[in-house]
């Protein structure tokens, strides 16, 4: 498994956080997509959306409920337009979409992952992200070792998670 894309994603997300960007993008690969969905689940990023070279519209990234109670009944106001679009039949010549992400055979090469970064009190929630297993020193771990790591114990070369918010094992 190549770690190049992962390493690049780590650096890129750190740099984007330091630059206080609200939205950034990464190549759409299944590996990065899985990783970022896990990070979203654990609260390190706001949202992960698949889009094209240009960022998706705000409504497609973070659909929000209207503050007007009357308007909440209107589905189109708080559902991503993409979701509405995918309900329509695909355009002629375009392959069927996969997973409802709007990814087709024609546009798959140009798809990117759009990631909403999180900040709190002017500090990024995702401060540091780095590879533990590197091409020069691969690290493999089973569940018992990961449990020890989470408890703060050193496992081989890997130091335990001893800082508050010092990381998660997804």
């Amino acid at each position: 498994m190549s770690l190049v894309h992962l390493a690049n994603a780590c650096s890129h997300l750190q740099n984007a956080s330091l630059a206080r960007l609200g939205l950034t993008s990464l190549p759409r690969t299944n590996q990065l997509h899985t990783l970022l969905l896990q990070m979203q689940k654990f609260g390190y990023v706001n949202n992960v959306t698949i889009g094209g070279p240009a960022p998706p519209p705000p409504s497609g990234i973070a659909p929000v409920l209207s503050t007007n109670p009357a308007a909440r009944g209107d589905v189109s106001s708080h559902v991503a337009p993409r979701a509405i679009n995918t309900s329509q039949p695909p355009a002629p010549g375009e392959a069927e979409s996969r997973d409802g992400d709007g990814v087709t055979q024609a546009n798959i090469s140009s798809r990117r992952l759009w990631i909403g970064l999180k900040y709190r009190n002017q500090t990024p929630v995702l401060e540091k992200m780095q590879l533990v297993s590197k091409p020069t020193r691969r690290v493999w771990m089973g569940v018992p070792q990961l449990e020890g790591l989470v408890r703060g114990e050193q496992q081989g070369y890997v130091r335990g998670l001893r800082a508050v918010g010092g990381g998660d094992v997804c």
């Binding site: 654990f42 609260g43 390190y44 999180k118 709190r120 009190n121 929630v125 800082a163 508050v164 918010g165």
Partner: peptide, 14 residues
């Protein structure tokens, strides 16, 4: 420079 669990918790939303 200590990070407090409450702050981390609010930041992560967990």
């Amino acid at each position: 420079g200590q990070r407090l669990p409450e702050e981390v918790s609010k930041g992560l939303g967990r």
